[in-house]
């Protein structure tokens, strides 16, 4: 169970940088009142963040990943149970990879 000083310094620097990201956006926008365009944009940001994260990740996985992602989405929409949606996604990816060879 060692704790080296250089590793500790790197971890603390990572933690500070990450906290700046977590709190920074809110801290700035609290002081500055955004114009209507930015306010409308902020309403769309949450969904867009996830879509913009998922699209390249699925693209990297090829068509089996798109299929598996769709399966997870459909199962979640139908049953509203996240654990089930995750299982459906993983199982579908496994099956499609078998089919793809």
């Amino acid at each position: 169970m060692s704790l080296r000083l250089d590793v500790l310094a790197a971890i603390l620097a990572m933690a500070v940088a990450t906290y700046l990201c977590r709190a920074g956006g809110y801290a700035v926008l609290r002081v500055v009142r955004p114009p209507p365009f930015v306010q409308a944009m902020l309403a769309y940001l949450p969904g867009c963040i996830f879509v913009a994260f998922l699209a390249p990740a699925l693209a990297d996985g090829g068509w089996p990943a798109w299929g598996a992602g769709t399966a997870a989405l459909l199962v979640q929409a139908r049953f509203r149970t996240t654990a089930l949606a995750i299982l459906a996604g993983v199982a579908t990816l496994w099956l499609l990879r078998l089919v793809a060879g």
Binding site: G47, A68, A72, L73, T82, A85, I86, G89
Partner: peptide, 13 residues
């Protein structure tokens, strides 16, 4: 490892 992507997929709903 697809589990984390599937979890994010499901939060879109």
């Amino acid at each position: 490892f697809f589990a984390s992507l599937a979890a994010l997929m499901s939060v879109l709903v």
